[in-house]
Each structure stands twice: as structure tokens, then as C-alpha cells.
Amino acid sequence: MSEVKFNDETLAVVHNLMRRYPEGRHKSALLPILHLAQAEFGGWLSPATMDYVASILNIKPVEVYEVASFYSMYNLNPVGKCMLEVCRTSSCWLRGADDVIRHIEKRLEIKVGETTADGMFSLKAVECLGSCGTAPMMQVGKDFHENLTLEKVDELLTQFTNEDKHSRYCDANTYRKN
């Protein structure tokens, strides 16, 4: 396992983020930094990654674990390259979210909460993502895929497999530079 260290570009962003909060309050940057860490270090937060983030913020590792385990967007275990997050709340359910989930389960031969054997996909069922007017929907990284049909789901899965990329919520370019 290679050493856990942000690349220079991300590190510059991390230091900028810390400056967004008043003197002595840089712990505020924990959530955005954990997002960057998850994106850069394999899509999940390993203990080594969390220790590294603690060292950057000069706080105790346990403070990071405590926070990371509270929020659902942080993965504390390895996940597939591509995380499929399907909403199953009211409006999506009314518009066929269950069919979407069943279809993905069948095609990928996994259940909700599992990862494919090749490590390509993880499937997660989530609560309302604010896409109810364009239901059903799934989030993959920061992208919202809306008005889903089973054909559209198939096309997306093929596309993700071909691209073979990690899904990410954010990267160093998400934030303004100054």
C-alpha cells in the first residue's frame, strides 16, 4: 500500500479550505476534506486515510472517526469503483424505483449493499435526493441520472463498465482557487 498523501494540487485546495474558517476553527474543514480524501484514496476512508486527515487538521484521529461514521456519504469499508445510489423514497417509489433496483440487482448479480465480484459496482439504496420531479433517479458520483427507464439503466451500466472510472463526488477543481 502506497503512502497516504494528497497530491500537491489537492493539498493546496485543502489548505485553502482551512482558511475559509476563522483562526482556531479549522476543524470546520473536516467534512470537505474527508470528501476530497475519499475521492483521492480509493472511494473509501481507511483508518490510514483518516489518521492522515487528522494529522493535517492537527486533531485527534478519534475525532475524525467519530465524524466519518456519522455521515452516510463516507464509506468506511472498500466499495466498488462505481457507486450506484438509487433513491427509493416516495416520489421515486411511485415512479418505479423498485423496478430499477431489482433490474440492477439481477443484471449485476448483487443485492443492495453489495459489491460485484470484479469490484466494479456497488449498489446502495438511498433516501430522497431532491430529484423527485424527475423520478426515478440514481446518483453516481456527483452526477444525477434522472427519469430512469430500464433501458436507460442498461445503457448507463454499459457506459460505466467501458469507462472503468471511479465515481466521485468532488475533486480539487470543485472549489475556487483563491
Binding site: R20, R25, K27, S28, A29, L30, L31, P32, L34, H35, E66, V67, F70, Y71, S72, M73, Y74, E127, C170, Y175
Partner: peptide, 27 residues
């Protein structure tokens, strides 16, 4: 003015939980 992302927790819509979260803590 700064944008600050949360990380998935329904309760953080409640204003005091939101402030805790903005301080880098559990919501």
C-alpha cells in the same frame, strides 16, 4: 462568502445540527 458541503445526514437540516456539522462535528 463560502460554500460548505455536508455529507449525508437528514438531521443536519435542523439549524442547530447544521451548525454543529459546520463546525466539523457530528450533526
Amino acid at each position: 462568502m463560502y460554500v460548505h458541503p455536508g455529507a449525508g445526514a437528514y438531521i443536519c437540516g435542523e439549524e442547530t445540527a447544521l451548525l454543529e456539522s459546520l463546525e466539523g462535528k457530528r450533526g
